[in-house]
Amino acid sequence: MSQSSKKNLTVGVLALQGAFREHCYALVQAGAEPVEVRRRRQLAGLDALIIPGGESTTMGKLMVSYHLLDPIRELGAAGLPIFGTCAGLVMLAREVCEGDQPLLGLMDMKVRRNAFGRQVKSFEAPLSVPALGEPLFPGIFIRAPWIESAGPEAEILAEFDGHPVAARQGRMLVTAFHPELTDDLRLHRLFLEMAAASRAKQPHPMTPPSA
């Protein structure tokens, strides 16, 4: 199956819980075609996947119950580009500092959930993200995690107060903040570039068996 790289990218957005609609909207704005993913069969034919913000414990449980955790892990390991924001960052980590919850473990990083504190500590701050250039990116942090430690393969893209809050590893991109709640599409565009580069190299090996 070969597709022209001119055709819009089809990007799944995990729609179990959380701010998935905002990601779909951002994708449309950035020129991609979003597909809501709630069941395993909806993973077929995707060029990339976004795991949105929400409650990572809720999402993790639903991913286990609806047999999405292993297939997404396999697709990610096989090269499917994945963008995780907030809870999505937690899901992609290898390890969380406290508690045990289902994780994809696709990125070599340990994360601390709710690292900045409870909701009264949630904040907005302009962020320097060198990979995006100027101007600063509007960071919206909501009960946000941070990356406690990361292996050599993970490239840190942004820090706040000395803590890594955005990273890239291979075809994985993560942010502790919420670009989908802003009008700034640069991170979605960066991710779509990663996905387009990946599609050019590897046209669609990723069709899982339907559930």
Partner: peptide, 20 residues
């Protein structure tokens, strides 16, 4: 850095969507 803005207040509700 600004805390307690309408954006982060309403933003948490956005993150609860689709949930119980």
């Amino acid at each position: 850095m600004k805390i307690g803005t309408m954006k982060v207040k309403a933003g948490l509700a956005e993150m609860l969507k689709g949930g119980v």
